[in-house]
Design a protein around this nucleic acid. Structure first.
Lengths: 116, 116
DNA sequence: TAGTAATATGATTATAGAGTTATATTAAAT
DNA sequence: ATTTAATATAACTCTATAATCATATTACTA
């Protein structure tokens, strides 16, 4: 019997969709927005204060995030509230942070073994 | 006592590092390479056959992936073997795929509720 | 109905990076 | 020593997109 680790190969289209999602998280400002929204629903103005960039820029990033169902949008009068719609985002960030930490620890250990 | 969900806000620099990592995964070709390497260590030539692009392009992507310690490099004679060095990658992909699936199911359900 | 505040959009610029072609490097083989 | 094979790199083009500025839209208020 074959030791078959069977990997389901994703189609190029599927890969593109997944990549699209990763790319969406590949911007510091967008990550900052999501991190800010972790505290709860927030207006565009509040978000703009929290992350350091212009309001139009925030609006654009929010639109992208909403297009991909990562945040939700709720309008009340003249102000618009956004909230996290897909909490799996934070799971992703946790994994990445863990990986980064390991990487840094590994470097630290290498340095130690060199310098005693 | 306050129901303090305390979120540790990441510094802009930390956010940039995390974003960098996501951006690295935000390319279909690179995801394809990683998916290919899931089967085990492989030479550049073999990888090039598996993903549909040129060899120089594969080499560049591999270099990026190696720079970020996502793959490892081993040279034997004239051929170079790459392998997954950071398996957390696949954890990330699983989360994204799950999220995409939920999103599609939700759309499907909405359609059903519209069309009966 | 003006006027103001909150958000979104359009036009533009600037930069990053993906792909390609040609070529360089390196190591093995004849 | 040439030649061949495997991989890497350099120069270049092209596209995508992030940021900015100005302005449009929308809703509330005096």
């Amino acid at each position: 019997m074959k030791k078959s680790k069977d990997y389901q190969m994703m189609s190029p289209e599927a890969l593109t969709m997944v990549a699209e999602r990763f790319r969406l998280l590949g911007e510091p400002i967008r990550l900052g927005i999501l991190q800010t929204l972790q505290a709860g629903e927030m207006s565009v103005g509040e978000i703009t204060e929290a992350v350091e960039t212009s309001q139009p820029n925030v609006s654009k990033h929010l639109k992208m995030l909403q297009t991909f169902d990562i945040v939700s949008r709720r309008q009340q009068g003249n102000t618009v509230y956004y909230a996290i719609a897909d909490p799996s985002i934070f799971e992703l960030c946790d994994v990445v942070c863990g990986s980064l930490q390991e990487r840094m620890e590994s470097r630290y250990n290498k340095m130690q073994s060199v310098f005693g």
